[in-house]
Design a protein around this nucleic acid. Structure first.
Lengths: 207, 207
DNA sequence: CGTGTATTTGACTTTGTTCAACACGCGTGG
DNA sequence: CCACGCGTGTTGAACAAAGTCAAATACACG
């Protein structure tokens, strides 16, 4: 994309700040906007009528939200940490994308990668044990991918709803990993991976 | 897409027939091809080293496979029923797509829809009970979407690996739904939905 | 008609949930 | 400054849903 294209994009972007805990997409609402997160972390989730919740992913800097074709959002979104984002009117973005093949291509790449991540998560939810899920989660949250320190900005409830478990199981599993010397828990929101290789063995079910 | 474009597409398409039970994509193999299914049903799956399997979806006529960006396939694929498909060399298709914005657009639509389906499946795997999963599965497999008769070309093992359950639980749950008058099971591969509304209540967790 | 596979059913086990109590950190106000 | 209250996290004990193991039945195919 050239500079002129970026300028056109910037012209229709509405920058916004979302404070912690605020929802900015409601599942089922008319899908009028498209979002690009520029800072912070948001959780994306689906709900059952009785309140059960599945967090389908955490979106942070660079993530695109709302590219579904449907007229309504298929998921809700809420800030876990204060979020900065750019909002785009879908019809306006649509006309812009239509003569920016590079943008379309980029979106297809993004969607493809998310699809791969979604399949990995299905494997986790359908076939992994609680220990394997937590180990996988900790490894996946490393940034950079070799870092020993992992920060968990989301609450236990969110981790539980992401991994298809309860907060009690998350808590017990983390404690057990600590007792086994695989991790350290300097604070509830910080984890130090003491044995990444061991965690990886666990995460891939080889233990 | 114009007729000339379709002709160019057809020129690089390699039609193939895959017999039942044959794998045609192996997870981890170099992603050299792109597939378009023209008949039959295939299962897509991911494996853990110890053999646990998660089926991430069933692909049938019209499905596109292998659009991930990665150099290797993130999933395996195997014919459930005899499959007819067109295979495309990825580099050749890439050059073709690059000057067919309509095709790129179509692929983005497909990917977006699959993403929505994947999120729905994560909700199912992470938060629904066995009964809710089976009810959701039966309703989703209706074709047309209001049909009372559902055919299950895949074995119980495949249903189990798709719903994150065991074959025994699938079997017991179907029997129980039959005993409760919600469905009829004329044969293991055929299900008649006697009370779609009741099943829907179940599937959405409202019971 | 027999053989092998897929499915169903039954008895028992296990993993993770539920319910409940307790600990900890933190901000507010006495 | 410290007691109090509240939200979040941890731990324990009882429970339940689904899994495992095993056996019986049904089914398709040679």
């Amino acid at each position: 994309m050239g500079e002129a294209d970026l300028a056109r994009l910037a012209a229709i972007a509405q920058p916004m700040s979302i404070s912690e805990g605020r929802a900015f997409i409601a599942e089922g609402d008319p899908a009028e906007h498209f979002f690009n997160i520029t800072a912070g972390t948001a959780k994306l989730f689906k709900l059952l009528p009785d309140g059960r919740r599945q967090i389908t992913g955490f979106a942070s800097i660079g993530s695109f939200l709302g590219l579904a074709v449907s007229v309504t959002y298929a998921f809700g979104a809420e800030a876990v940490e204060p979020v900065h984002l750019c909002r785009f009117s879908r019809p306006r973005l649509r006309t812009l994308i239509d003569d920016l093949p590079a943008m379309e291509k980029r979106l297809l790449e993004v969607a493809s990668n998310e699809l791969v991540a979604a399949q990995e998560q299905m494997l986790l939810l359908g076939r992994k044990t609680a220990r394997e899920r937590v180990a996988s989660f900790l490894l996946a949250r490393r940034d950079p991918p070799a870092a020993a320190l992992v920060s968990l900005p989301m609450a236990r409830t969110d981790i539980a709803d992401y991994l298809g478990l309860t907060i009690e199981t998350i808590s017990r599993t983390l404690t057990r990993l600590r007792n086994e010397g695989l991790i350290d828990l300097p604070s509830p929101t910080r984890v130090r991976l003491l044995d990444p290789a061991g965690l990886n063995t666990l995460a891939t079910g080889l233990s």
